[in-house]
């Protein structure tokens, strides 16, 4: 079988994100023991593994929430350090955290523009800028429409939305940053069947827009349904990396448990 990267588009270009020999230790615990992963533009890469496999540590490193103990990160071929989530966002890497991403009582527009609100000058004064609520509402609506989510009122508090709509709001924030690489941490973990389908559809739409997605998931059916490639971690090491073509959920579950194909 060919290495996955050969069959991806743009294989002759540098990977969008390249992780080399990434290690992370917490005191005496080695969460990551030298992981190499390439993420190619336009793919949906699933990262799977049992609890304690190192998924969360890896995500925290790529999202800028933590720096690795060792190893290098390159974005579009250029070595970088991600010092904070803000740093990662500005480089086009947005992470959507499982439960922490949204402020439930704030509106859709406020959540999409959280931390990066739009302002407009007032009375032509150079330093007096007030929030441009109308433009934020319009643009937030635009992002949600791109994700085929129709909510009438952008001032609706996020707590009144369904689980699928909330994920769309979180993705809307990533679109607002024009993130090229979107990392989604267990986006369907708390959702019902219908909402899960909605979120998987959101991921397909992101891919159709040419964005790259890293999907962390326990749900093997989700993974084979939307991911183009899967990386399996076990005890802090990468044990498998292959395209999802031809894989079914049961085979994948077996691979996650044993690290080998049946």
């Amino acid at each position: 079988m060919q290495p996955a990267s050969r069959i991806m588009e743009g294989a002759d270009e540098a990977p969008l994100l390249s992780l080399r020999a990434i290690t992370k230790t917490y005191g005496a615990v080695e969460a990551l023991k030298g992981v190499d992963i390439d993420v190619h533009a336009g793919e949906v890469l699933a990262i799977c593994g049992d609890n304690g496999a190192g998924k969360s540590s890896l995500i925290r490193i790529v999202s800028g929430a933590q720096e690795p103990t060792g190893g290098t990160i390159a974005l579009r071929g250029e070595p970088i350090r991600l010092r904070s989530p803000q740093d990662a966002l500005q480089r086009g890497v947005a992470t959507i955290y499982q439960d922490l991403a949204l402020a439930p009582r704030l509106s859709i527009a406020q959540n999409v523009f959280l931390g990066s609100e739009l302002t407009r000058p007032v009375l032509g004064l150079p330093f007096a800028r007030l929030l441009d609520k109308r433009r934020m509402a319009e643009e937030a609506r635009g992002y949600l429409q791109r994700l085929a989510i129709d909510v009438a009122d952008m001032t609706t508090p996020v707590e009144r939305l369904s689980g699928g709509q909330r994920q769309a709001v979180a993705i809307g924030r990533a679109l607002r940053w024009d993130a090229e690489l979107i990392i989604m941490d267990e986006p369907t973990a708390a959702l019902g069947v219908k909402e899960t389908a909605q979120v998987l559809d959101l991921i397909r739409r992101l891919r159709a827009e040419g964005r790259t997605v890293i999907l962390i998931s326990h749900n093997m059916a989700d993974v084979v349904s939307v991911a183009t490639r899967v990386v399996i971690l076990k005890s802090g090491r990468k044990v498998t990396e292959e395209p999802t073509v031809g894989l079914d959920a049961d085979t994948l579950a077996h691979m996650v448990m044993t690290g080998k194909k049946p």
Partner: peptide, 16 residues
Amino acid sequence: LVATGEAEEAARLAGI
């Protein structure tokens, strides 16, 4: 300021 009180972790992760 308001976002900090509403959802501190979300605000921090959004760069506030």
